[in-house]
Simulated assay, not measured.
Amino acid sequence: MDTILEVRDLCIQLKSQKDYYNLIEEISFDVKKGEAFGIVGESGCGKSLTAYSIMGLISSPNLKTHKGSIIFENRDLLKMSKSEIQKIRGKDIAMIFQEPMTALDPLFTIGYQLMEALEIHKNLSKDEMKRLSIEILKKVGIPRAEAIIDEYPHQLSGGMLQRVMIGIAMINNPNILVADEPTTALDVTIQAQILSLMNELRSDYGMALIMITHDLGVIAETCDRVAVFYGGHIVEVADVVSLFHKPMHPYTKGLIRSVKTLGDKNQSLYTIPGTVPTIDQMGRGCRFADRCERALSKCKDNKPPLQEYENGHLCRCWLNEEG
């Protein structure tokens, strides 16, 4: 498959009163056309920040892109002007945000917000935009679509709002859909429906999907390949089958061990020891070293590189160098 997005050596810094800190560092990955690529890790590891970088949505004066590139269709998104990135955002690359209740404007109807996405990127009549809005609502499984477009966000359930968000993201038929924790606020039944819908839409539209989540179950359900984030680094990249059956990084192994399954007779739930260090406590070496049960002496002082070991399986760990 051809590559549609290339992220290379991305580094984003936070400016404090005393110094600059690398929130994410040396982030590199590719997304293929039509592929579902997962980004998994716990809160604060840099998943959403990476997504906002791709979308050109980092606006805080205390955050800056220190180095790196994000190549889409042979152009670096990080070097584009605001007007150039606005032409791509929502049309070629679209995003679904974590909380549909806060992502949608409560003052405007569902139809207005759907048609706004069309109006920015296409020159259509109001009747045509309304027709396409009703059509996409039906496509994402919303009943009474003709009536829903005249309703406000507070009149819909969380699951319906998430479907509306997917509709807004899909209405311009994007090449890449970035989904940032799209099922976090939903109950298990609705979550399964949303994941099934996203798989169906990806197949129908032939788009690439970047699924950002902390839930390994979501990764297993939707993704072809996955990157594991920890402390602002990518620690492992592999296809989903290899990641679950042959994980290489101690952090990935800990995440998988922490998942309970039906019929598991072991009553105790495994937890990774220690806590995630704050950004000013990150050492010079491996950022997972203080929590790793198999850390070597050089792990704390020497940062391991992200290396390929077999069939595109990448890992950032000195243990693999030592055999």
Rank of each mutant, 00 (worst) to 15 (best):
A103E: 03
E116C: 02
K122L: 14
I96T: 05
E116M: 11
E99K: 05
P106C: 03
I88W: 01
E99V: 10
L124S: 08
M115K: 15
E116R: 04
M101Y: 09
Y112G: 09
E128G: 07
E116V: 07
I88L: 07
P106I: 00
I93N: 02
A94T: 02
M101W: 11
I93R: 04
E128V: 12
L107W: 12
T109D: 03
T109A: 01
A117S: 14
I110Q: 04
I96R: 03
T102E: 03
K91Q: 12
L118N: 09
G90D: 03
N123S: 15
L104F: 01
S125I: 12
P100Q: 09
P106Q: 03
S125Q: 04
R89M: 05
L107I: 14
T109R: 00
T109H: 04
L118D: 08
M95G: 09
K126F: 11
D127R: 14
L107K: 10
Y112R: 13
Q86G: 03
Q98E: 09
A117M: 11
A117H: 03
I120T: 14
Q113C: 04
Q113M: 09
E116D: 14
S125Y: 06
K122G: 12
M101K: 13
P100V: 05
Q86I: 12
S125H: 03
I120P: 11
M95S: 11
M115A: 11
A117D: 07
A103N: 00
A117G: 04
I120Q: 06
I96E: 07
I96L: 10
D105F: 01
Q113H: 07
K126D: 14
A94R: 09
I96N: 07
Q98I: 09
G90M: 04
Q113S: 04
Q113R: 03
L118V: 12
D127P: 13
Y112P: 06
H121Y: 08
K122Y: 14
T102F: 06
I96M: 07
D127Y: 13
G111I: 02
H121A: 12
T109V: 02
T109Y: 05
I96F: 06
Q86C: 14
H121M: 13
I110G: 00
P106A: 00
I93D: 08
Y112Q: 13
E128W: 08
L104K: 04
E119K: 15
I96S: 09
L118E: 05
P106Y: 02
R89Q: 03
P100F: 02
F108L: 00
I110W: 01
G111H: 08
A103F: 06
F108I: 01
E128N: 07
L124E: 04
P106G: 02
L104S: 00
E128R: 11
D105M: 04
Y112C: 09
E99C: 09
K91P: 07
T109N: 06
F97T: 09
P100E: 09
L104V: 00
D105R: 01
D127M: 14
A103K: 05
K122A: 11
K122H: 14
M95T: 10
K126C: 05
K87D: 10
G111K: 07
P100D: 06
S125E: 07
Q86K: 15
N123C: 12
E99R: 11
